[in-house]
Amino acid sequence: PPQTPIRAAMTSIQQLRGDLISSGDQPSTNLATYFKNCTVDPTQDVLKRLETLGHVYSQRFGQAVGPRSTVLGMQRFNLGVRLYYQVMEEMLKMEEQRLSVQNFSKLLNDSTFHSSLLACALEVVMATYGESRYKSGGVDSAETDLCFPWILDVFRLPAFDFYKVIESFIKADHTMNKDIVKHLETCENLIMERIAWRTGSPLFELLKQEHAGGAAEQLETPAS
């Protein structure tokens, strides 16, 4: 039978929490092995970054939602970390299969990759709790303060970099329900259509590099 919006949200939340119970709040044995296989072990940087971003996130969450919500923000963050580790492990397994490598040192020492992945995990958590999806009720409710791209501002993350993880995240998280996938697709479209084109986006540097690289090539003659 069709669910009421509240029942659907509660089911979604229960499913997310249930899926993440078995994930620890520390890297699993498999994930720790990927870290150790790196030329430069990223473990300490990962843990330090999580501590810093956890503090930043919960403070900003409290500012957005209300002074007593900092603890709630920390709970959301902790769920996000579990999801982040879980999806990271699955991504690395998929990459290992695709590329036949076990040393992901460059990727796992890239702080933008980690911030993007964590931001995506938190976006999924907040969307599950109904906090970051656009509401038809308008802009007055506190929930809309957490709406995407709020997380990009909190992590000072360029939208273009966040965009890079979305598809791989959806591929790697097999339990995501279609409403959350739809939400990430909405974020993706917003980035492609608008946010990635704002001043200061890394996209412009990439375009410059592509243009400079292609300048020596002959122009294609127009097709007849």
Partner: peptide
């Protein structure tokens, strides 16, 4: 099930997107 369009080719993945190929 969802209808998300996966655009990455088989030879493309997170490693290439973060310039780690």
């Amino acid at each position: 099930s969802h209808d998300y369009h996966f655009g990455l080719e088989d030879h493309e993945g997170i490693s290439e997107l973060f310039d780690c190929d």
